[in-house]
Design a protein around this nucleic acid. Structure first.
Lengths: 117, 117
DNA sequence: GTAACGTACAACCAAATGGTTGCACAAACT
DNA sequence: AGTTTGTGCAACCATTTGGTTGTACGTTAC
C-alpha cells in the first residue's frame, strides 16, 4: 500500500479539470501505452503544436503525465500513480454512498413502514 | 452487472468538469449521504443562492446529481450510478497501463539487456 | 558553421466559467 | 388575499480556457 499523499482541493481540481477534455484524455491514454515526444503527439491532432503543448502542460501540472528531456525532445509518459489517486478519490464517494446504505439498513433492520423511495 | 451505457466524449467532459470544483464535489458528497433542497445546500456555502443553484445545475447536467420536486422545493440527491461510471472510466486507464506492463513482461520474458528505465 | 527540428513562451482573441444582482413565478403560510 | 419562501432565469462582469501566430533558443543533422 502506497502512502496516500493527501491531495489539496486545488490539486484535485487540477486533476479532474485536466481529465475534462477529450484531447487530454487521449494524450494520457496514448502515453500510458507508449511514451511520445510533444511533437509526435502534436502530429496526431488537428491543432497547432502550441495547442498540444499547452494540453501537455495542463496534464503535467495535474501530475497525470511526466515529461523527461531526451536530447532536444521532451518525452511524455502517462503517470499511472496519479490515475490511481483519482480512482481513490472516486472510491471515497462510493464509500460514502455505501455507508449511507449501511446506516439505512441498520435503521430498517428494526421495523417501520416501507419507505416511499 | 449493469449495462454499460457508452458515454460520449461530451458526456465524459461534463462529468469530469463537474468534479473539477471543490464546491460541487462537496455538494455531491453531502447529497450522497442526505438529500437536501437547493436552498438548504445554498445556506452551507459562502456564496449567493444563484451561484449554488448553478453548481447544482452543472452537476445535474453531468448526471452526478438528481433533482426531484417536492412541493416548492427541489430535492437534490447524489447519483452513485454516475460515480460508478466515472470510476469505470478511470479503470480503463488502469487497464491500459496494466496491459502495457503485460506486454513488456512478455517481451522481457525472453532475454535482452536490462532496460535503462 | 548553418540549416532544420523540437520546445517554450508571449501576445492576442473568442468563448466558457463562476460569480453577482434583479426579476418572475409557483407553493406555502397567516 | 397577501406575504414569505424556494426556485429558475436573464443580464452583467472579471477571469480562465483553448485556440491561434510569432519569436527565441537549445539540439541535432549536414
Amino acid at each position: 500500500m502506497v502512502a496516500q499523499t493527501e491531495l489539496s482541493d486545488a490539486e484535485v481540481d487540477r486533476i479532474f479539470h485536466a481529465l475534462a477534455d477529450a484531447t487530454r484524455r487521449d494524450i494520457v491514454r496514448r502515453t500510458l501505452t507508449v511514451e511520445a515526444s510533444v511533437s509526435e503527439l502534436a502530429s496526431a491532432y488537428d491543432m497547432s503544436f502550441a495547442a498540444v503543448q499547452k494540453h501537455v502542460a495542463v496534464l503535467e501540472g495535474a501530475g497525470l503525465v511526466v515529461k523527461k528531456p531526451r536530447g532536444r525532445e521532451r518525452i511524455v509518459r502517462g503517470n499511472p500513480e496519479q490515475i490511481r489517486r483519482a480512482q481513490a478519490l472516486l472510491d471515497r464517494y462510493e464509500q460514502i454512498w455505501r455507508s449511507r446504505i449501511d446506516r439505512l439498513d441498520a435503521l430498517l433492520a428494526g421495523d417501520g413502514p416501507s419507505p416511499q423511495n
